[in-house]
Design a protein around this nucleic acid. Structure first.
Lengths: 333, 333
DNA sequence: GCCGGGGTTGCATAGCTATGCGATACGGAC
DNA sequence: GTCCGTATCGCATAGCTATGCAACCCCGGC
């Protein structure tokens, strides 16, 4: 039943008090060399591993950061998750990974996170409901949200300048002589999707183009593939399509080239969003907008650290990182 | 400082004992309807969230499962991670995500995992060193390892039948008239890589083919790309190459078609391993071996559950899942 | 020889929940 | 009215570490 040796066990074997053991493991703790030696020796014999658990009770700090994620099929999120985890580990934190089915709400798992007394939450979830945000605010758990600006004074967010990125694509399409436009989107509830669509539309409208073929699906390759086929089976299909993310764009590319029988970029211009590694694979060589994941992660960490230092959320912080256009083969004429 | 209400706080407000509060939250706890009502009411007012922390101390169960992972850039691992996390959450467990730089050892983080008293560890790490395995055995933390059979009585593993998969590829290449063969591999320390290479070689040797061009790199797209260029700049390049995983294969495909100027499958046959989503994208349509990730995850969970029920590792269990060949365009003549 | 100070040490307790045990209450059986 | 079983309740304690406080030692200064 009892698996681990306790500090009391170590103290007994070393012939010192339990507090001496505790202090031995506290950096800068007041212990003589002699005592420290005895303690470490006894600890070694007993395979002692200090437990975080009582420490959490006393200090009210778990050093646990929850990362909430859904849709890891998107390499962009896998990258974010990996970098975030690595960086948090460097500063002595641990990551509690929580998976939420995309479309579902955080609500159901908040009690669980609270029960583990997580220090903060990073949400890369498409949707963080206002109700969830309120709950977290009441529990005073700092939250940083990726690409999902929430109207809540407690929650901070780090996002990409989606609208401006979309405008750059519109400009590029027009410059290259695009005449009819299409948008292959993600779920309509996704804020990122909304911003990308409206930015694209706005800029086109400024150039007196108001007709845009818009079809939405999920953020997956298969959706891009099918939507493209459907879109190009209609009369007067577009000659320039902007896709809400790279997976959709790549799906669309494959559909256009292998199914519809059109050439890209000669017949149709295509652009995506994210700049996942797959976008620069030579078979696709996709023009896209770079979401600077490393920088977004760093900004999120900055907010997190500030919140943790203040022992509360630092309040509503909204960081917006510019999106950078990379022109590749799918728009090179 | 004090953030959360405790069961004592709730008890005081509800006018009952602390144990009544505790029992209210214990399924099947002996509490009257009246008491339960009072408790829940008070809990609501105080935003009470029962803490797992003291429970862990008492029960010696944290319900935390550590997942150790490195190289999330490979979609195969992203898939495994997602499915594993989702399934563990269903059974009330939580995932402690640990990132280890590929090539590094687990050693450095074992104390940390021990300090959080994780119930078990799932390692999708390329390498689980014998020393790490020993440490974990001494601490009696059950371990299930993915694709890395470890010679240790405490550690279980779930892997794919790498050698047999590789043999199937050899057979296919020969059947299709391949005459000279190449292998683009992963890191030489990777057991999966070793098994795939030796299976491939063995089968070829049985057909009296002993010359195989072997070049190894990391498991990435870029490596496949560069290695292919290098391999095909030598005299007498192969006309059939087997790649240690899909990312390498896709990189090689792109290099062959866009850089080297060869046609696949007409001039060269190519096969990979994993069957990541990208492999079936129509631009690649890659012949590969399906690693049945869902089944591997399920087997890992089965072992895990048995270990947790026994309150110890169930000892060395080695599950090997067959790899299934899917023939696609890169070997279709 | 006395005093002050810095470095060590141990004692005692906080922090929060689960649970064994004894106490109590209640309803029914006789 | 007595007795017994059952349901419910509260008391007290375990589980492990961090830390404030008091005690102690040693040393140098005067």
């Amino acid at each position: 039943m009892k698996k681990y040796a306790s500090s009391t066990d170590v103290a007994r074997l070393a012939g010192v008090s339990q507090s001496a053991v505790s202090r031995t493991y506290k950096p800068g703790g007041s212990v003589s060399e002699e005592t420290r030696r005895k303690v470490l020796e006894a600890a070694e014999k007993l395979e002692y591993r200090p437990s975080m658990i009582p420490r959490i009770m006393l200090t009210h700090r778990s050093n646990l950061i929850a990362i909430v994620i859904g849709g890891m099929y998107n390499p962009f999120y896998a990258t974010v998750l990996e970098r975030l985890t690595a960086k948090l580990q460097e500063t002595g934190h641990q990551v509690l990974l929580v998976h939420v089915e995309s479309g579902h709400s955080l609500d159901a798992i908040i009690p669980r996170l609270a029960s583990y007394r997580v220090d903060a939450i990073v949400s890369a979830l498409a949707i963080l409901s206002p109700k969830s945000a309120d709950d977290l605010a009441r529990l005073k758990i700092p939250v940083v949200s990726f690409n999902t600006p929430v109207k809540n004074e407690w929650v901070s967010s780090v996002s990409c300048d989606n609208a401006n990125g979309a405008r750059q694509v519109a400009d590029l399409f027009i410059k290259l002589g695009g005449r009819s436009f299409g948008y292959i989107g993600g779920p309509s509830e996704s804020p990122a999707n909304q911003e990308r669509l409206s930015g694209f539309r706005e800029r086109l409208a400024e150039r007196d183009i108001t007709e845009v073929a818009v079809v939405g699906g999920d953020f997956r390759y298969e959706d891009g593939f099918e939507i493209a086929i459907e879109m190009f089976s209609r009369p007067n299909p577009p000659d320039a399509i902007f896709c809400a993310n790279d997976l959709l764009a790549i799906g669309a590319l494959d559909a256009l080239r292998k199914k519809v029988g059109l050439r890209v970029p000669e017949d149709v211009l295509v652009a995506g969003f994210d700049d996942i590694p797959e976008a620069s694979w030579t078979a696709y060589d996709l023009t896209t907008l770079v979401q600077d994941a490393p920088r977004m992660v760093d900004e999120a960490l900055r907010i997190l650290r500030a919140s943790l230092a203040a022992n509360a959320s630092v309040g509503e912080v909204r960081i917006v990182i510019p999106a950078k256009l990379v022109e590749r083969g799918t728009t090179r004429r």
